[in-house]
Design a protein around this nucleic acid. Sequence first.
DNA 1: ACAAAAGTGTTTTACATACACCCATGG
DNA 2: CCATGGGTGTATGTAAAACACTTTTGT
Lengths: 229, 229
Amino acid sequence: MQVQQNIKLAVDAVVFGYQTNHLYILLVKQRYGINKNKWVLPGGFVLDKESLDDAVARELQEEAGLSVNYLEQLYTFGDVHRDKRGRVVSVAYFGLVDPNKFNLQADTDASEAQWFLLGELPTVGYDHQDIISLAEKRLSAKLHYQPIGFDLLPKEFPFSDLEHLYKTILGKEIDRRNFRKKMLSFGILEETNKIKKVGSGRPAKLFSFNNQKYQELLKGGFLFEIKLV
Amino acid sequence: MQVQQNIKLAVDAVVFGYQTNHLYILLVKQRYGINKNKWVLPGGFVLDKESLDDAVARELQEEAGLSVNYLEQLYTFGDVHRDKRGRVVSVAYFGLVDPNKFNLQADTDASEAQWFLLGELPTVGYDHQDIISLAEKRLSAKLHYQPIGFDLLPKEFPFSDLEHLYKTILGKEIDRRNFRKKMLSFGILEETNKIKKVGSGRPAKLFSFNNQKYQELLKGGFLFEIKLV
DNA sequence: ACAAAAGTGTTTTACATACACCCATGG
DNA sequence: CCATGGGTGTATGTAAAACACTTTTGT
């Protein structure tokens, strides 16, 4: 295959984490090059013998010691001048982690990886702000038609956490009664017999997302859809 | 920028055309290599100094003399072995043309480009069948939440054409009265004072899609959404 | 007893669905 | 006058939206 081409291929990941009613994004500090010490998305060049999916997973592991529990392709950014060092096309990914994985280990290279509160992001290098903006849009959109919020929560969670997650990410008020009614009507949540006690207030039953049930329903043409005013 | 990487970057396009109640896809005949004389998607390698979008437009022009009126990125296919000649990552696009552009000119290289009825596709090379399948899914999905059907029709069309388009692509029966009511309720269609006479039957008023109006509505949070049983 | 968060039902409103007959033209 | 496709309205069902008080715990 004779092709003259001087284009490098990279992957980048926008990984969201959620904790105590706040939404975070993972960034890493660039160690070399013209963007040295700038914060950028975790990512890097694709190896010759790994798929794109594998490349993202590897980079996240290397740069932040992190394995996500949801990952999908977001968009491929291919403008000619998006990287000043040369032509680099980047396949961007969209990832979610639950709070168990939120605490970054300080071994690996992780000392230079950090969670940033959305809305308090530093100036990021390259065109990574565009990538982040697109990922935010994707996250908001997906919350409405895919049960993806559960990937940002621990396996068992009080209902109010789910409600707050939607409220936080969509920036909208939610009617608790209608939200709960609708969510439960899908039949993809299971009530555990555990309860969570917090400082004050009535203890909450814990729920868990039954993914197997969801997959079954999907085959029958089921549509997860939640609208908010 | 020192990176050892031996990956080629290509673009491919799944272009849909619609005529006389039938949906078509554009394929081109491969002229060289191991897939010689096999039908494949129009596409090719990205040049060093053109964006991905430009690359697709150029390839469509070169291989089929075609300029589409809707084009968006579909997905990036990056499996290691998708091309037996070596590592090639392909950014796939999704395009729509209206019937004016349907007749392929025989100049250019177009003699080897051809419309194929969906459902009567030949065996295609590489992993292009996967790409086509994904594009079909995208098309079906988009019809429900984006006014994209108009890009497959001429500027002015009888209402029944729109109805047949939905029926054909989604493979579902449609209640004509409800469909028309819903579509018109959006306020993005304009009734022209022209009428189209066909062989027999009552002549039909022609409608046109008002994209400007649609864009305005979008800013106000308008959501195009059409559900079919 | 009070503060704090969890839990719960009913009424109203809007939209989707189901359904069948008349109209304008060409042959 | 008949065949063909275009054009239209209403009644019913179902789901979303609006809305406020009671329960359980900790302090």
